[in-house]
Amino acid sequence: MIDRKRLIIAGIVAALFIVALARTLIGPSPRGIQTDTRLLMGTLVTISVWGVEKGRAQPAMNAAFEEMARIEARMSRFVATSEVASLNAAERGTWQPLSEELERVMTLGMEIDGLSGGAFDIGLGPLSDLWGFSREPPPETPPEPRDIRKWLEFRSARTGPGIEISEHRLRLANASVGLDLGGIAKGYAVDRAMEILEREGVAHALINAGGDMRIAGSKGGKPWHIGLRDPRQADGVVAVMDLKGSVAISTSGDYERFFIHQGVRHHHILDPATGHSARSGLMSVSIQAPGSFLADALSTALFVLGETKGLALLEKFPNSAALLIREDGSRIQTPGFIAVAPP
Protein backbone atom coordinates (compact mmCIF):
# COMPACT_ATOMS: atom_id res chain seq x y z
CA MET A 1 0.00 0.00 0.00
CA ILE A 2 2.73 2.42 1.02
CA ASP A 3 4.63 1.63 -2.21
CA ARG A 4 1.60 2.63 -4.28
CA LYS A 5 1.29 5.86 -2.32
CA ARG A 6 4.98 6.56 -2.78
CA LEU A 7 4.51 5.99 -6.51
CA ILE A 8 1.71 8.59 -6.56
CA ILE A 9 3.84 11.04 -4.58
CA ALA A 10 6.73 10.51 -6.96
CA GLY A 11 4.35 11.27 -9.84
CA ILE A 12 3.15 14.50 -8.20
CA VAL A 13 6.73 15.61 -7.49
CA ALA A 14 7.80 14.86 -11.05
CA ALA A 15 4.80 16.73 -12.51
CA LEU A 16 5.45 19.81 -10.36
CA PHE A 17 9.12 19.74 -11.26
CA ILE A 18 8.40 19.46 -15.00
CA VAL A 19 5.90 22.35 -14.89
CA ALA A 20 8.39 24.57 -13.01
CA LEU A 21 11.17 23.62 -15.41
CA ALA A 22 8.99 24.27 -18.47
CA ARG A 23 8.02 27.71 -17.14
CA THR A 24 11.66 28.58 -16.71
CA LEU A 25 12.67 27.36 -20.16
CA ILE A 26 9.69 28.58 -22.20
CA GLY A 27 9.40 31.93 -20.44
CA PRO A 28 6.43 33.99 -19.38
CA SER A 29 2.88 32.83 -19.37
CA PRO A 30 1.12 33.05 -22.72
CA ARG A 31 -1.64 35.12 -21.12
CA GLY A 32 -0.04 38.56 -21.42
CA ILE A 33 1.06 40.92 -24.15
CA GLN A 34 4.50 40.65 -25.70
CA THR A 35 5.83 43.60 -27.63
CA ASP A 36 8.73 44.44 -29.90
CA THR A 37 9.69 47.55 -31.85
CA ARG A 38 11.75 48.50 -34.89
CA LEU A 39 12.53 51.67 -36.78
CA LEU A 40 11.05 51.03 -40.21
CA MET A 41 9.53 53.15 -42.98
CA GLY A 42 10.66 56.32 -41.25
CA THR A 43 8.72 55.62 -38.08
CA LEU A 44 8.64 53.49 -34.95
CA VAL A 45 6.79 50.26 -35.63
CA THR A 46 5.45 48.37 -32.64
CA ILE A 47 4.01 44.87 -32.76
CA SER A 48 2.12 43.51 -29.76
CA VAL A 49 0.87 39.95 -29.61
CA TRP A 50 -1.36 38.36 -27.04
CA GLY A 51 -1.72 34.77 -25.90
CA VAL A 52 1.36 33.36 -27.59
CA GLU A 53 4.23 31.53 -25.90
CA LYS A 54 7.45 33.51 -25.90
CA GLY A 55 9.17 30.87 -27.97
CA ARG A 56 6.67 31.43 -30.80
CA ALA A 57 5.94 35.14 -30.35
CA GLN A 58 9.39 36.53 -31.04
CA PRO A 59 10.01 34.57 -34.29
CA ALA A 60 6.54 35.60 -35.49
CA MET A 61 7.20 39.27 -34.73
CA ASN A 62 10.63 39.06 -36.36
CA ALA A 63 9.07 37.60 -39.52
CA ALA A 64 6.49 40.40 -39.61
CA PHE A 65 9.20 43.08 -39.19
CA GLU A 66 11.26 41.45 -41.94
CA GLU A 67 8.29 41.61 -44.29
CA MET A 68 7.84 45.32 -43.58
CA ALA A 69 11.55 45.92 -44.15
CA ARG A 70 11.31 44.06 -47.46
CA ILE A 71 8.42 46.26 -48.57
CA GLU A 72 10.29 49.41 -47.52
CA ALA A 73 13.31 48.26 -49.53
CA ARG A 74 11.10 47.95 -52.60
CA MET A 75 8.67 50.86 -52.24
CA SER A 76 10.47 53.70 -50.48
CA ARG A 77 11.51 56.50 -52.79
CA PHE A 78 14.23 57.38 -50.28
CA VAL A 79 16.00 54.03 -50.60
CA ALA A 80 18.34 54.51 -53.58
CA THR A 81 18.21 50.83 -54.55
CA SER A 82 14.42 50.49 -54.36
CA GLU A 83 12.23 49.72 -57.34
CA VAL A 84 10.35 53.00 -56.81
CA ALA A 85 13.59 55.02 -56.77
CA SER A 86 14.69 53.28 -59.95
CA LEU A 87 11.36 54.09 -61.66
CA ASN A 88 11.62 57.70 -60.52
CA ALA A 89 15.12 57.95 -61.98
CA ALA A 90 14.01 56.65 -65.39
CA GLU A 91 13.54 59.00 -68.33
CA ARG A 92 10.00 60.34 -68.50
CA GLY A 93 7.78 59.01 -71.25
CA THR A 94 9.58 55.65 -71.41
CA TRP A 95 8.08 52.31 -70.43
CA GLN A 96 9.80 50.61 -67.50
CA PRO A 97 9.35 47.07 -66.15
CA LEU A 98 7.16 46.81 -63.05
CA SER A 99 7.16 44.01 -60.48
CA GLU A 100 3.92 42.14 -59.90
CA GLU A 101 3.74 43.33 -56.28
CA LEU A 102 4.31 47.01 -57.05
CA GLU A 103 1.86 46.80 -59.93
CA ARG A 104 -0.81 45.41 -57.59
CA VAL A 105 -0.23 48.12 -54.97
CA MET A 106 -0.11 50.93 -57.53
CA THR A 107 -3.22 49.70 -59.33
CA LEU A 108 -5.17 49.84 -56.06
CA GLY A 109 -3.74 53.28 -55.32
CA MET A 110 -4.73 54.53 -58.76
CA GLU A 111 -8.25 53.20 -58.28
CA ILE A 112 -8.62 55.38 -55.20
CA ASP A 113 -6.99 58.23 -57.12
CA GLY A 114 -9.73 57.88 -59.76
CA LEU A 115 -12.56 57.61 -57.23
CA SER A 116 -11.26 60.66 -55.35
CA GLY A 117 -11.11 62.75 -58.52
CA GLY A 118 -7.34 63.07 -58.18
CA ALA A 119 -7.32 64.23 -54.56
CA PHE A 120 -5.36 61.11 -53.65
CA ASP A 121 -2.37 61.03 -55.96
CA ILE A 122 0.56 58.59 -55.79
CA GLY A 123 2.54 60.64 -58.32
CA LEU A 124 3.34 63.67 -56.18
CA GLY A 125 7.05 62.88 -55.65
CA PRO A 126 8.39 66.10 -57.26
CA LEU A 127 5.93 68.28 -55.35
CA SER A 128 6.80 66.50 -52.08
CA ASP A 129 10.49 67.11 -52.84
CA LEU A 130 9.77 70.82 -53.33
CA TRP A 131 8.19 71.06 -49.90
CA GLY A 132 10.75 68.75 -48.27
CA PHE A 133 8.70 67.59 -45.29
CA SER A 134 10.70 64.36 -45.20
CA ARG A 135 14.04 66.19 -45.02
CA GLU A 136 16.20 66.41 -41.92
CA PRO A 137 16.22 69.05 -40.62
CA PRO A 138 12.61 69.75 -41.62
CA PRO A 139 11.78 72.89 -43.61
CA GLU A 140 10.84 76.17 -41.95
CA THR A 141 9.73 78.07 -45.03
CA PRO A 142 7.55 77.13 -48.00
CA PRO A 143 9.06 76.67 -51.46
CA GLU A 144 9.39 79.66 -53.78
CA PRO A 145 5.97 80.43 -55.33
CA ARG A 146 7.53 80.32 -58.82
CA ASP A 147 8.65 76.71 -58.20
CA ILE A 148 5.12 75.67 -57.29
CA ARG A 149 3.74 77.53 -60.32
CA LYS A 150 6.24 75.72 -62.53
CA TRP A 151 5.17 72.37 -61.10
CA LEU A 152 1.50 73.22 -61.70
CA GLU A 153 2.31 74.22 -65.31
CA PHE A 154 4.08 70.93 -65.91
CA ARG A 155 1.13 69.10 -64.42
CA SER A 156 -1.43 70.88 -66.55
CA ALA A 157 0.75 70.31 -69.65
CA ARG A 158 0.13 66.59 -69.41
CA THR A 159 -2.04 65.34 -72.24
CA GLY A 160 -2.81 61.95 -70.67
CA PRO A 161 -2.65 60.34 -67.27
CA GLY A 162 0.41 61.06 -65.13
CA ILE A 163 1.02 57.38 -64.50
CA GLU A 164 0.24 54.60 -66.96
CA ILE A 165 0.45 50.88 -66.25
CA SER A 166 0.23 48.28 -68.99
CA GLU A 167 1.44 44.69 -69.31
CA HIS A 168 3.65 44.82 -66.20
CA ARG A 169 5.24 48.07 -67.33
CA LEU A 170 4.93 51.62 -66.11
CA ARG A 171 5.32 55.02 -67.76
CA LEU A 172 5.55 58.39 -66.03
CA ALA A 173 4.28 61.27 -68.15
CA ASN A 174 6.64 64.18 -67.47
CA ALA A 175 8.75 65.92 -64.83
CA SER A 176 5.68 66.80 -62.74
CA VAL A 177 5.20 63.11 -61.92
CA GLY A 178 7.27 60.92 -59.61
CA LEU A 179 6.14 58.03 -57.45
CA ASP A 180 5.52 58.77 -53.78
CA LEU A 181 3.77 55.84 -52.13
CA GLY A 182 3.86 57.45 -48.70
CA GLY A 183 0.04 57.40 -48.60
CA ILE A 184 -0.29 53.64 -49.11
CA ALA A 185 2.97 51.72 -48.71
CA LYS A 186 2.90 51.80 -44.91
CA GLY A 187 -0.71 50.58 -44.89
CA TYR A 188 0.16 47.81 -47.34
CA ALA A 189 3.15 46.82 -45.18
CA VAL A 190 0.97 46.67 -42.05
CA ASP A 191 -1.54 44.43 -43.86
CA ARG A 192 1.24 42.12 -45.04
CA ALA A 193 2.80 42.01 -41.56
CA MET A 194 -0.55 40.99 -40.08
CA GLU A 195 -0.84 38.22 -42.69
CA ILE A 196 2.60 36.98 -41.63
CA LEU A 197 1.58 36.96 -37.96
CA GLU A 198 -1.57 35.00 -38.81
CA ARG A 199 0.48 32.54 -40.86
CA GLU A 200 2.71 32.08 -37.81
CA GLY A 201 -0.32 31.19 -35.71
CA VAL A 202 -0.83 34.54 -33.98
CA ALA A 203 -4.55 35.26 -33.71
CA HIS A 204 -4.43 38.29 -31.40
CA ALA A 205 -2.17 41.18 -32.34
CA LEU A 206 -1.79 44.91 -32.78
CA ILE A 207 0.58 46.48 -35.30
CA ASN A 208 1.20 50.20 -34.93
CA ALA A 209 3.32 51.86 -37.61
CA GLY A 210 3.48 55.45 -36.45
CA GLY A 211 -0.28 55.70 -36.05
CA ASP A 212 -1.29 53.50 -38.98
CA MET A 213 -2.45 50.42 -37.21
CA ARG A 214 -4.26 47.17 -37.52
CA ILE A 215 -5.65 44.90 -34.86
CA ALA A 216 -6.63 41.24 -34.81
CA GLY A 217 -8.61 39.41 -32.16
CA SER A 218 -8.55 40.70 -28.62
CA LYS A 219 -6.67 40.43 -25.34
CA GLY A 220 -8.36 37.37 -23.89
CA GLY A 221 -11.78 38.77 -24.71
CA LYS A 222 -10.87 42.33 -23.74
CA PRO A 223 -10.74 44.83 -26.61
CA TRP A 224 -7.60 46.60 -27.75
CA HIS A 225 -7.69 50.02 -26.16
CA ILE A 226 -6.71 52.68 -28.72
CA GLY A 227 -6.48 56.43 -28.23
CA LEU A 228 -7.00 59.03 -30.95
CA ARG A 229 -4.59 61.93 -30.66
CA ASP A 230 -5.81 65.44 -30.06
CA PRO A 231 -4.74 67.42 -33.18
CA ARG A 232 -3.60 70.39 -31.12
CA GLN A 233 -2.34 68.76 -27.89
CA ALA A 234 0.34 66.16 -28.47
CA ASP A 235 -0.27 64.45 -25.13
CA GLY A 236 -4.05 64.50 -25.28
CA VAL A 237 -6.61 62.20 -26.83
CA VAL A 238 -9.97 63.21 -28.25
CA ALA A 239 -11.54 59.77 -28.54
CA VAL A 240 -11.13 56.24 -27.28
CA MET A 241 -11.60 53.22 -29.52
CA ASP A 242 -12.12 49.83 -27.90
CA LEU A 243 -11.83 47.40 -30.77
CA LYS A 244 -11.93 43.64 -31.30
CA GLY A 245 -11.66 41.48 -34.39
CA SER A 246 -10.05 42.62 -37.63
CA VAL A 247 -9.95 46.40 -37.96
CA ALA A 248 -7.47 48.89 -39.42
CA ILE A 249 -7.19 52.47 -38.21
CA SER A 250 -5.40 55.32 -39.91
CA THR A 251 -5.28 59.02 -39.10
CA SER A 252 -4.10 61.89 -41.29
CA GLY A 253 -3.67 65.27 -39.68
CA ASP A 254 -2.15 68.68 -40.22
CA TYR A 255 0.00 68.25 -37.08
CA GLU A 256 2.21 65.31 -38.05
CA ARG A 257 4.80 67.17 -40.10
CA PHE A 258 4.29 70.90 -40.32
CA PHE A 259 5.78 74.32 -39.78
CA ILE A 260 4.20 77.70 -39.21
CA HIS A 261 5.50 80.47 -41.46
CA GLN A 262 4.22 84.05 -41.09
CA GLY A 263 1.28 82.77 -39.09
CA VAL A 264 0.27 80.14 -41.67
CA ARG A 265 0.41 76.42 -40.93
CA HIS A 266 2.00 74.43 -43.75
CA HIS A 267 1.70 70.65 -43.42
CA HIS A 268 2.71 67.56 -45.36
CA ILE A 269 -0.66 66.58 -46.83
CA LEU A 270 -0.46 68.27 -50.22
CA ASP A 271 -3.35 69.15 -52.49
CA PRO A 272 -2.46 68.31 -56.12
CA ALA A 273 -4.89 70.97 -57.33
CA THR A 274 -3.03 73.85 -55.65
CA GLY A 275 0.46 72.51 -54.99
CA HIS A 276 0.09 73.66 -51.38
CA SER A 277 -0.92 72.01 -48.11
CA ALA A 278 -4.56 70.90 -48.28
CA ARG A 279 -6.94 73.48 -46.79
CA SER A 280 -10.19 71.63 -46.48
CA GLY A 281 -11.37 72.92 -43.11
CA LEU A 282 -10.19 69.77 -41.32
CA MET A 283 -7.50 69.18 -38.70
CA SER A 284 -7.62 65.41 -38.83
CA VAL A 285 -9.35 62.48 -40.46
CA SER A 286 -9.42 59.02 -38.90
CA ILE A 287 -10.62 55.98 -40.79
CA GLN A 288 -11.66 52.55 -39.58
CA ALA A 289 -11.58 50.07 -42.48
CA PRO A 290 -11.13 46.34 -43.14
CA GLY A 291 -7.48 46.85 -44.12
CA SER A 292 -4.64 49.27 -43.47
CA PHE A 293 -3.99 49.94 -47.16
CA LEU A 294 -7.52 51.24 -47.60
CA ALA A 295 -7.57 53.12 -44.27
CA ASP A 296 -4.24 54.79 -45.12
CA ALA A 297 -5.39 55.92 -48.58
CA LEU A 298 -8.85 57.04 -47.46
CA SER A 299 -7.57 59.13 -44.54
CA THR A 300 -5.35 61.12 -46.93
CA ALA A 301 -8.03 61.40 -49.64
CA LEU A 302 -10.73 62.57 -47.21
CA PHE A 303 -8.38 65.11 -45.65
CA VAL A 304 -7.67 66.66 -49.06
CA LEU A 305 -11.30 66.51 -50.22
CA GLY A 306 -12.81 67.94 -47.03
CA GLU A 307 -16.11 67.19 -45.38
CA THR A 308 -18.68 67.12 -48.21
CA LYS A 309 -16.72 65.51 -51.02
CA GLY A 310 -14.80 63.30 -48.57
CA LEU A 311 -17.93 61.79 -47.05
CA ALA A 312 -19.30 61.21 -50.55
CA LEU A 313 -16.12 59.25 -51.35
CA LEU A 314 -16.45 57.27 -48.13
CA GLU A 315 -19.93 56.07 -49.19
CA LYS A 316 -18.22 54.09 -51.95
CA PHE A 317 -16.55 51.97 -49.25
CA PRO A 318 -19.45 50.52 -47.23
CA ASN A 319 -17.26 48.76 -44.64
CA SER A 320 -15.32 51.90 -43.78
CA ALA A 321 -16.16 54.69 -41.35
CA ALA A 322 -14.63 58.04 -40.45
CA LEU A 323 -14.17 60.56 -37.68
CA LEU A 324 -13.46 64.06 -39.00
CA ILE A 325 -12.28 66.87 -36.76
CA ARG A 326 -12.94 70.33 -38.17
CA GLU A 327 -10.61 73.28 -37.65
CA ASP A 328 -12.98 74.65 -34.99
CA GLY A 329 -12.66 71.38 -33.04
CA SER A 330 -16.16 70.10 -33.83
CA ARG A 331 -16.50 66.56 -35.14
CA ILE A 332 -18.34 64.41 -37.61
CA GLN A 333 -18.51 60.72 -36.76
CA THR A 334 -20.05 58.50 -39.41
CA PRO A 335 -22.19 55.48 -38.44
CA GLY A 336 -19.96 52.48 -37.85
CA PHE A 337 -17.00 54.42 -36.50
CA ILE A 338 -16.38 52.90 -33.07
CA ALA A 339 -15.22 55.58 -30.66
CA VAL A 340 -16.33 57.31 -27.50
CA ALA A 341 -15.20 60.51 -25.82
CA PRO A 342 -12.36 60.00 -23.32
CA PRO A 343 -13.40 59.85 -19.66
Binding site: I33, S48, L206, M213, H225, I226, M241, T251, G253, E256
Partner: peptide, 8 residues
Protein backbone atom coordinates in the same frame (compact mmCIF):
# COMPACT_ATOMS: atom_id res chain seq x y z
CA UNK B 1 -0.04 55.90 -21.32
CA UNK B 2 -3.15 53.89 -20.54
CA UNK B 3 -3.62 52.80 -24.17
CA UNK B 4 -2.37 49.85 -26.18
CA UNK B 5 -1.61 52.38 -28.93
CA UNK B 6 -2.47 55.89 -30.08
CA UNK B 7 -3.54 56.70 -33.62
CA UNK B 8 -1.97 59.96 -34.71
Amino acid sequence: GGFDAVSE
